[in-house]
Amino acid sequence: MEMYEKILVTTMGEYMDEIIEHTVDLFRGRDAEILCVYVVETSVPFLTPKKVKEMMIEELTSRGKEILTDMEKGIKKSTDSNVNFRGIMVEGNPADEIVKIAEDEDVDVIVMGTGKGIVDKHLLGSVSEKVIHSAPCTVLLVRTV
């Protein structure tokens, strides 16, 4: 039995090359099903004007579409294997949505970047840290800092 056939890749558009490289390495020489998720973070602070919030979501959604297309091209270009790629865009809290998709889709592994340095982690919070604590499967954290 192959260990990693259904892979969930998460991206915010940064470190895509590193993430693609590690993902492709997981299924080298075999066929794989890849789900790539981009989460549009919809939470805004209290007193954010409604029109500005709408604008933010619109901009993030259009960015997400571009990122998912780039990811598909990047993965297919990096491997000769037969890859079944599916881009998923959802709105919500990134960590919660990633874990939920991993559960619903019953994936074998989640691939994501470590993302932030120590200062950023404390100031901004870390999605990967939240995911590893509640993920229903193995998580491959690609070192990106």
């Binding site: 915010m12 973070e41 209290f46 007193l47 004007p49 500005v52 933010m56 993030l60």
Partner: peptide
């Protein structure tokens, strides 16, 4: 300036740089 603060800070954190500085 609270609206500017919430918009600038949250858009910078979401990577929406132009909105952040433009605001």
């Amino acid at each position: 300036s609270i609206p500017e603060l919430v918009v600038t800070l949250s858009s910078a954190m979401k990577g929406l740089h132009e909105l952040s500085i433009g605001t």
